[in-house]
């Protein structure tokens, strides 16, 4: 299978939520000496972005979304592990959903995209106390803290995170990214966040920019 065909197949395996196929293609890509990041970015990531779009349009449903995300994770894990040392981890990100907010589909997609793009991600889950974001970031010496919120009632947690970081004298130590349905670039600017991701792919792009890679 040539590179172009493999990349197309990789995209399709995620849309079809075919975990076995995704795994096989990831291994084939490594065996053929292809650039793992190129396979992720042009193949698997394109597939998961399409899955997210189809879900957002009501053309694909949650069970399929979960299965696609699983297939993506298997492929991304295999390809990330094959990255040459030094290039292996772009940076460390602590990701979670704001306190009081149990919605984590969007956050999990961001985690998948970040992992697929070579970040070491610490997913601390949903409905997480603000202080836990800070504790985890200190514990793992993170570069970025990402907080997602789906509700207008929980998005204030993103503001609280930045205030708490300032109080603790840690604001300059970590970059803060925010996202979620009610969040906007204006909201991010207003609360003093370093970046806002409109969707998972954008979040990964912004994370790279924050670390000066783009």
């Amino acid at each position: 299978m040539d590179k172009e065909q493999l990349i197309k197949e990789a995209e399709k395996s995620i849309i079809d939520a075919d975990k076995a196929k995704a795994e096989e293609l990831a291994k084939s890509a490594i065996a053929a000496g292809m650039d793992p990041l190129e396979v992720i970015n042009k193949g698997f990531s394109v597939g998961i972005a399409k899955v997210g779009d189809l879900f957002g349009r009501g053309e694909l449903f949650l069970p399929e979304l979960i299965l696609s995300a699983e297939a993506m994770k298997v492929a991304a894990d295999i390809l990330n592990a094959s990255l040459p040392k030094g290039a292996q981890k772009r940076g460390k990100v602590v990701m979670g959903t704001a306190q009081g907010d149990i919605h984590d589909i969007g956050k999990s997609m961001v985690v998948s995209f970040l992992q697929a793009n070579g970040f070491e991600v610490y997913d601390i889950g949903r409905d997480v106390e603000t202080q836990k974001f800070i504790e985890k970031a200190q514990e793992v010496d993170a570069d970025i803290i990402g907080m997602s919120a789906l509700l207008t009632t929980t998005m204030s947690g993103q503001k609280t995170l930045i205030e708490e970081l300032k109080k603790a004298g840690l604001r300059d130590k970590f970059k803060v990214m925010v996202g979620g349905a009610p969040a906007t670039q204006r909201w991010a600017d207003r609360i003093g966040a370093d970046a806002y991701g409109v969707d998972a792919a954008d979040a990964a792009e912004k994370a790279m920019k924050l670390l000066g890679e783009k």
């Binding site: 349009r57 009501g58 053309e59 694909l60 449903f61 949650l62 069970p63 399929e64």
Partner: peptide, 21 residues
């Protein structure tokens, strides 16, 4: 605006509910 497919296979009167606008 559309019915979220949390189950994905439910129907009413033979019509699949997930994704309806």
């Amino acid at each position: 605006e559309f019915i979220l497919g949390m189950h994905g296979e439910l129907t009413y009167d033979g019509v699949k509910l997930a994704g309806l606008y």
